[in-house]
């Protein structure tokens, strides 16, 4: 499949959103709202549930399904309070020694006036800084769009996985095309240049796993995710916190020039 087809697939109408992953992978899920500072951001869902019986904290970007729901969730583009809610719940997970599972699906952090007034840059920066030393295992899965810093703010993790038809990029293909060729319509070319498919990222060593998808039924993918998540968490049970954090540091330290 060409890169641009992957972009379309990642954004396709009817593609499962985070809620469906949560409902199919975890049990006893209780949603927890609010950042305790300003408000509750519908673009990010957080809560506690069980992964094969074990309590875990789940944080997910949710684009919404119906039109009304999409608007309420700002089409999955978080405001600062969303990132601050995520960080609050991660700190809570650390306190109660729960692993954290993040689902990433956003075209990007919301570029609005209120977002700037409330410190969008700071909110993301704080997540990057704090996630790096969160004293509990963190696994992130890109399930649709992984749009730049707004996606990374939930993906400074021990392992990052991608669904077969998800994308992860520093800039949207449209944004890239309009900067590069001053023509937002050259998205196909831009999609190729950016190397944003799961295969590209796996090849570059930026992700650890690709989760295969079948066309219509995601139940096999959910089961696979459940199994692998359980294993990823179990594998880290015998590891000391120091070693866990050292490995996480090295995971990101190795990217790029040395």
């Amino acid at each position: 499949m060409e890169a641009y087809e992957k972009v379309l697939a990642a954004r396709a109408k009817g593609r499962p959103t985070a809620i469906e992953y949560i409902n199919n992978i975890f049990t006893d899920f209780q949603e927890l709202h609010g950042d305790r500072r300003y408000g509750d951001d519908g673009a990010i869902i957080g809560g506690i549930g069980r992964l094969c019986g074990m309590p875990v904290t789940v944080i997910a970007q949710e684009k919404g399904s119906s039109t009304k729901d999409k608007i309420a969730r700002n089409f999955g583009s978080p405001n600062p309070e969303g990132y601050r809610k995520a960080l609050r719940l991660m700190k809570q997970a650390e306190k109660f020694r729960r692993p954290v599972i993040c689902f990433v699906d956003t075209s990007g952090a919301y570029p609005g006036m209120g977002a700037e007034e409330r410190g969008q840059g700071l909110a993301i920066a704080e997540n990057l800084m704090e996630m790096g030393t969160l004293k509990t295992p963190v696994i992130s899965i890109l399930i649709g769009e992984g749009g730049s810093g707004g996606a990374l703010a939930l993906a400074v993790s021990d392992e990052v996985w991608m669904m077969e038809n998800s994308i992860y990029s520093v800039i949207s293909p449209e944004g890239c095309a309009s900067i590069l060729w001053r023509d937002a319509k050259k998205v196909k070319e831009a999609s190729e240049c950016l190397r944003l498919t799961a295969d590209d990222l796996y090849e570059m060593g930026v992700i650890e796993r690709i989760i295969p998808e079948s066309d219509k039924d995601f139940s096999a993918a959910y089961l696979l995710l459940q199994t692998w998540l359980k294993k990823a968490v179990d594998d880290r049970k015998g590891i000391s916190t120091d070693e866990l954090l050292e490995k996480r540091y090295e995971r990101f330290r190795k990217f790029g020039a040395r």
Binding site: L128, G132, T133, G149, V156, R195, L196, Y249, R253, G256
Partner: peptide
């Protein structure tokens, strides 16, 4: 911001630099 021409590896620099800032701060 992050340099588009180096794709996802530019994005990863945000996490990498933040990790180093945190260690310095800690």
């Amino acid at each position: 911001g992050a340099r588009m021409q180096e794709g996802i590896l530019s994005l990863m620099q945000m996490a990498k630099t933040s990790g180093a800032v945190k260690r310095h701060s800690d």
